[in-house]
Simulated scan of single mutants.
Amino acid sequence: MGWKARALAAWWLACGMTVAAAAGADKGRRGMPVDTREMAQWVMETDDAAGRPFAIVDKKAAQLFVFEAGGRLVGSTPVLLGATPGDHSTPGVGQRAQTGDVGLHERTTPAGRFASAPGRNIDGEPVVWFDYGAALAIHRLRPGSARERRQARLASATPADNRASLGCVVVPVAFYEKVVEPLLGRVRGVVYVLPEKRPVRDFLEAM
């Protein structure tokens, strides 16, 4: 058993139901779901981000949470995710994404731990890559004929209609400029995308 697995086991044993209870109270105060709270605590307990800023994508809640290197939550926002639920990417989807030749069943936002890096897409737009090989990034809502409909999805009260992208994590323009860009858009970081098909505890144990 590696040191992260040992740390995780000790963490679960020490926290137990207290973590869930604290997360429930924190949800009302900061809008942080239980899964996100547990993930953030694990990152800090294990120093998994190694002193870098990090973000957590909670796919079940369709929200993005951005943290400073020290663990302080800087901001959160609803996001648009891959149109199809799923925790894995289809092999080769990154190459086809550049031309839009991606089937509906391939439009997933995969779960995992990703080393993020600031960069630009093929149009020169600043983005935060979190899975460059699969052409997946955190980016702002783009202009276009579907913009108003996507804005409505972001503003809705339910995450059920936030499945609209090819797999990228799409955020409001103001949030990207005020929160994402200053932290993840200038230095390397870590992006944790939580699973939607299995418990977060299983996800952590596999890391």
Rank of each mutant, 00 (worst) to 15 (best):
M1G: 14
W3K: 12
K4P: 00
K4F: 08
A5K: 06
A5R: 12
A7R: 13
L8G: 08
A9P: 03
A9L: 14
A9V: 06
W11R: 08
M17N: 14
T18M: 13
V19K: 05
A22N: 12
A22M: 09
A22E: 15
A25K: 09
A25R: 15
D26V: 06
R29G: 10
R30Q: 15
M32T: 15
P33E: 09
E38K: 14
M39L: 10
A40R: 05
V43A: 00
M44A: 07
D47H: 09
D47L: 10
A50N: 12
A50M: 12
G51N: 00
G51A: 01
R52W: 00
P53R: 07
P53W: 02
F54W: 14
A55R: 05
I56E: 10
V57I: 13
K59V: 12
K59T: 08
A62I: 02
L64M: 07
L64T: 02
L64H: 07
F67C: 00
A69V: 00
G70I: 03
G70N: 13
V74H: 06
G75W: 14
G75M: 09
V79N: 02
V79H: 05
A83S: 15
P85F: 08
P85C: 12
G86P: 08
S89H: 09
S89L: 07
T90C: 05
P91G: 11
P91H: 08
R96F: 08
R96T: 01
A97Q: 04
Q98A: 07
T99V: 10
V102F: 06
G103C: 03
L104P: 05
H105A: 15
H105L: 15
E106S: 08
R107D: 06
R107N: 05
T108R: 15
P110D: 06
G112F: 04
F114P: 10
F114H: 13
A115C: 11
A115E: 11
A115V: 11
S116K: 00
G119C: 01
I122F: 14
G124R: 09
G124M: 09
G124E: 07
G124C: 02
E125S: 13
P126I: 14
P126Y: 10
P126E: 15
V128E: 11
F130Q: 09
A134T: 01
L136P: 04
A137G: 01
H139Q: 07
R140H: 14
R140A: 15
L141F: 00
L141P: 00
S145H: 06
S145W: 04
A146Y: 05
R147D: 02
Q151L: 13
L154M: 08
A155H: 00
A157P: 03
P159D: 03
A160K: 09
A160E: 15
A160V: 13
D161K: 10
D161E: 14
D161I: 07
N162S: 10
A164S: 11
S165V: 01
S165N: 05
L166S: 12
L166E: 12
G167N: 11
C168N: 03
C168D: 03
V169S: 01
V170L: 06
P172W: 05
A174Y: 11
F175S: 02
L183E: 09
R186Q: 05
V187Q: 11
V190N: 02
Y192E: 01
Y192S: 00
Y192P: 01
Y192C: 01
V193R: 05
P195M: 03
P195N: 03
K197V: 06
R198F: 10
V200K: 12
R201N: 01
R201W: 08
D202T: 08
F203R: 04
